[in-house]
Amino acid sequence: MSQIDVPLSRSGFGRTQRADNWWIQPLAVFLGLSAFIIYATWAAFQGQHFRFGPYLSPFYSPELFGAPNQGWFGPMPSWMPAWVTAAVLILWAPGGFRVTCYYYRGAYYKAFWADPPSCTVGEPRKRYLGERSFPLILQNIHRYFLYFALLFLIILARDVWNAFWFNGRFGIGLGTLVLLANLVLLTCYTFGCHSLRHIVGGFRDRLSGAPTRKRVYECVSCLNRRHLLFAWCSLFMVAFADLYVRLCSMGVWRDWRIV
């Protein structure tokens, strides 16, 4: 029997008795989210190579202002600063949806704020306010970003439909499948949202007597159980869809026609 003097009430950043590699998960989240933010920011400010044939990058959809016959409201107004692209005008909505998402909140509080770095691991700060005061109280607007995200799904579905038509003729390219996969994953992510789960039935204590509502609630709950998976898959896919369109447009990749 030997003796080691260690105080029971430990504190201090990173201190823990955990024997596993607890830092791997927050580090992976930090690197994954950082990579996405850097790429998305870069791509949003490019303002070019976001169209290729019938494909439109999801970062630039809807194209509110753009080339003739392509922007919803015509060309970009002349008074708009040069750095404002079609992506800059719209990315606040899906970005806000992800930033206020319950899954991502838990993940980036750990990975970026170390609040805590991981379960039972010491934190760098003594003061803690949580989500009950400014600015984090603003996370409560998540459901409003959800409404925008649902609208965006309709727009992206229209883009996928357009991606099936090459110069007026039906066809399927690899880009069509990439945009379709992006739509499916984003749909699974959005329809697994905790706020949507609440809105479609979670706010009620009784779902008996409302079979349709109950069915919808169960479907959303089923996707909600895989919210983490779809959050990451859709995040990767939306960036890859932009990259695919961009590289095809730049002539680096060739779009394979399947049909």
Partner: peptide, 17 residues
Amino acid sequence: RTQFGIGLCNITKCCTK
């Protein structure tokens, strides 16, 4: 919202784990 302090939870899911 007030005395039970639900706003202090920042959803780290350690409790679930």
